[in-house]
Amino acid sequence: MHKLMSNRITIFWLVAPGFMLFLFMVCLPIVMSAYYGTTNWTGIGAYDFVGLDNYTNILFHDGVFWRSLLNALLLLAATLLIQHPIALLFAIFVTHAGKLEKWFRAIFFIPAVISIVVTSKMWVSVFHPNFGMFNKLLEGMGLSAWKQDWLGDPKLAIWCIIVVVMWQGFGYALLLYYAGLQGIPKDLYEAAELDGAGRVKLYTRVVIPLLSPMVRVAVVIAVTACLKQMETVFLMTNGGPANTTQFIGNYLYKTAFSSSLYGYGNAISVVFVIICLILTLAMNKAFKKDVGEF
């Protein structure tokens, strides 16, 4: 058995295909990016090496980059503080919905399966100042004064984007928590009830702590998703007005393809990857500490 399990040739054949593909499609491009990031290439023709200029510019002189990062963190905060608690609450509600349990679970998840291209276009229409649903709704309620140019207002636009992203991801978060709830032994509820613990107490004291492994998974997924956010912004505002809804993914695309700063765009993506790495490592450290407590 042991011999079989440490056969190098077998291991090679098991690991090589996936690993090679990963190296080739994920790591190699990053190395290439790091290389192009040291040039002033415009995407066409010859280029010069500019050393680390691009990188220092990003870190110290590029307001838009930091704004993009800030937006990602804002989105992350909203996701963790608003979307996730609601998703958890509704996951609990859904388990009590009786016959309709499956239906609710299905309906809540629907936005997550619809193409982002469709949902973005749809939301742009919903926010449209003239025929959009939001303004019509306000008008219908006699609140015309509250009508807004939702996506055109530099202060509001980012919140609109956050609402849309949270809306689309809601079902996913809910399903994760719902899955976590399914994993909790039924006896526990009964035992707790015998104890005379109220429902609220039951959940806050017993169930939610038991869900913590699931919370961890959900948080990791949320962090990666928020940092990587691009599609929704790309399709709804393209970062505007005036870069107030910019996210790094979209910014690097715009820099490389609209401003033709290909080298700079590549440098952005390298810095981006590094920031993601640091955040993940920090997160891992934090969670490892957590584990000890349970």
């Binding site: 415009t42 530099p154 505007g240 007005p241 005036a242 401003s259 033709s260």
Partner: peptide, 19 residues
């Protein structure tokens, strides 16, 4: 250049957008 173009257009968007 395209970089110039992006900057010019953004400046105009900000002016027209009262920013």
């Amino acid at each position: 250049t395209d970089e110039f173009k992006t900057k010019v257009m953004e400046a105009h968007q900000k002016l027209f957008g009262k920013q």
